[in-house]
Design a protein around this nucleic acid. Structure first.
Lengths: 363, 363
DNA sequence: CGGTGTCATGACATCGATGTCATATGCTTA
DNA sequence: TAAGCATATGACATCGATGTCATGACACCG
């Protein structure tokens, strides 16, 4: 590959002059500029990033670690929204800033993180983005290094800047939407107990109920702890059973995510309960593959992954330019409620739905 | 960040000796080695990739362009399997080879490719992987450069090495599986006409039929040209209508991909046709989010994206080591048939299924 | 005891771009 | 006309690692 010396020789000038044409950092006569440009063109010259990095001691690289993509064999990957969306959001911002994103995948093995960080150090990355596969406390130790870091979808206890979804606000807004349609008996099939998302969203759910003067009925909240496991369908089936025991049955079911909602659709239909006529269903994530393919299309709360990626990249770039701006606080990004056909007003009959309990014995 | 000179001074040796310890390319006394190792540790020294690149004129970087990830707003992304799986497969191989993968996303805009390639050139990547979002002819012009390239999920006419899914073999194997269960009337709801996958798979489908002595009935093949559009559900509904017109109705439906199968499940149920008791359904892709969440779980053909990524990376690495090995031919990677609950033997009644045509008027 | 290896180590140049400083050219102004 | 100054350009050193070549210290051999 041609070097700046080749270009200089070809144009009959010094390398330094070529450099000036490249960087426009000093006046160059129009005639010289043209000669140099022609030479660069003729030789197909592209400046070497490595040489620039050496001289300037700035790599122009941002490292991104995703623990999320994980192994293709893992069903867990498929459970929620692919963190890929976060990566895309970040990349969009980084590329516009003349920097280059170096993406590393742990392949699901957190023990590989030190290796990846080492590679980043070799490349002298100027900052690091760490992406978790779902909202949780940080589960690896990121070496200090001396460079800015931003966590995405996770957080730590030592004030590292972090960008997370606003789960509480999301579920609150979604639940308000459900209530505003006229529902009063609302069931909630949550994700696994103890997860960040579960706790926060449940809190948003209760807040919306209480604001509407609806009393909270613990029987209407069931968790799917074994989410993703073999007995999953049975588990969801049982949870729904509990919702429909007794007289005062729910007219709407909130689900921990869209995938869960998909399973719920199927189970309700097996039991002869129609969606949305008899029971409204809403999800979470806005996983388009599901929400737009299900019938009726699924009302859901957006999990703003792309926006989170954008925001995190912006924060990181800020940290790189102003070393002062200590964004030490955690940023919560909220998503929209996406209304679709699965949420309608409850039937204004007070007759309890008839549950086909026999259906429970299906395979 | 500490340099090799700092380490040398700290250990009381010359930089060259430190280099020897780093690269183990010349004998160093045990005592010296320990002193150097201690110094490296104390200073947190990590060698500069840029300096190495300059000296060796080898960047150790592989560029990957994905036109696939595209804009998050595009439903098309969600239609098939995310090409992310290809990227993961490639990354696994590249990382094991001591090289680093530089990933760029076109964000769906092919006109950005020249920019991305330029960035790759600045970084002096040693090879390029180009990933398309679905099996098709190459739709951009990749500048020649002087470096090896491997296309993934696409191909060109000038003999660039390419890795694509073996769609014909996949659908052939899947259809054989359907036939082996006893089905003779098999409908096929394909992806859009004219697509590579559609053409090849249809060919595999017909081959399997003909081998089994089943005559091909054009009425049993319908395409969903408007896949992903607003009127999609109606379109699929109509296609299924056609399948079930007349007496000789299908006992199994092959779908162009898993998402389509998901829609088919829903429509069949709306029409009162049970899966798999009355009609078996199979998909394509093995999109786990769908195949393992649907009930019954979906029998499908694996679209071997991860394996394709692995294979392509291997081919590229081969090209980099042996400049002789001209892998000019296109490599077809075949996937497995994944048997699940949606494919069972047809009911051995000869009574035609009763179709609830009234259901058609649903919303 | 000098010749000849081998081993361990260092001095120096180099990769490609650019910062620093010097120089040449031409033009203005006292 | 000479001093003064802006403009355009080049020589040289430098960033960090490593290839090349040289050298010092031993050990072994005839």
């Amino acid at each position: 590959m041609a070097t700046i010396y080749d270009v200089a020789k070809h144009a009959g000038v010094s390398p330094k002059t070529v450099s000036r044409v490249l960087n426009k950092d000093a006046p160059v006569s129009e005639k010289t500029r043209k000669a140099v440009a022609a030479a660069m063109n003729a030789l197909g010259y592209v400046p070497s990033h490595a040489a620039r990095t050496m001289k300037s001691n700035k790599s122009g690289l941002i490292g991104l670690i995703t623990g999320a993509i994980s192994n293709a064999d893992e069903i867990s990957t498929a459970a929620g929204l692919p963190d890929l969306l976060i990566v895309q959001g970040a990349q969009k911002v980084i590329e516009n800033s003349q920097k280059t994103l170096l993406i590393s995948d742990t392949g699901g093995r957190l023990d590989r993180v030190p290796d990846l960080v080492r590679t980043f150090q070799e490349h002298r990355v100027e900052g690091i983005l760490y992406v978790a596969d779902f909202h949780k406390p940080l589960d690896v130790t990121l070496p200090g290094l001396g460079i800015p870091k931003v966590l995405i979808n996770c957080y730590d206890m030592v004030g590292t800047p972090a960008v997370v979804p606003d789960d509480e606000a999301g579920q609150y807004a979604l639940t308000r939407e459900v209530i505003s349609m006229g529902h009063r008996r609302i069931a909630y099939l949550t994700l696994a107990r103890g997860q960040e998302a579960t706790t926060l969203r449940l809190s948003g759910f209760r807040k919306a109920l209480s604001e509407a003067g609806i009393s909270f009925d613990p029987k209407l909240v069931q968790a799917t702890d074994l989410f993703g496991s073999a007995g999953e369908r049975q588990l969801i089936w049982d949870a729904i059973d509990k919702f429909f025991q007794g007289d005062d049955q729910p007219t709407a079911i909130c689900c921990g995510n869209d995938r869960l909602a998909m399973a719920v659709y199927s189970i309700l239909r097996s039991r002869g309960i129609s969606v949305p006529e008899e029971v409204s269903v809403v999800g979470y994530d806005d996983h388009r593959l599901i929400t737009e393919t299900l019938y009726p299309p699924l009302t859901t709360a957006e999990l703003p992954y792309s926006a989170m990626g954008v925001r995190a990249a912006q924060v990181l770039l800020d940290l790189l330019s102003d070393s002062d701006s200590k964004t030490t606080e955690t940023i919560r990004v909220s998503g929209q409620v996406i209304p679709r056909g699965s949420l309608v007003a409850p039937r204004n009959t007070s007759v309890a739905n008839i549950i086909n309990l026999k259906g429970r014995n299906e395979r």
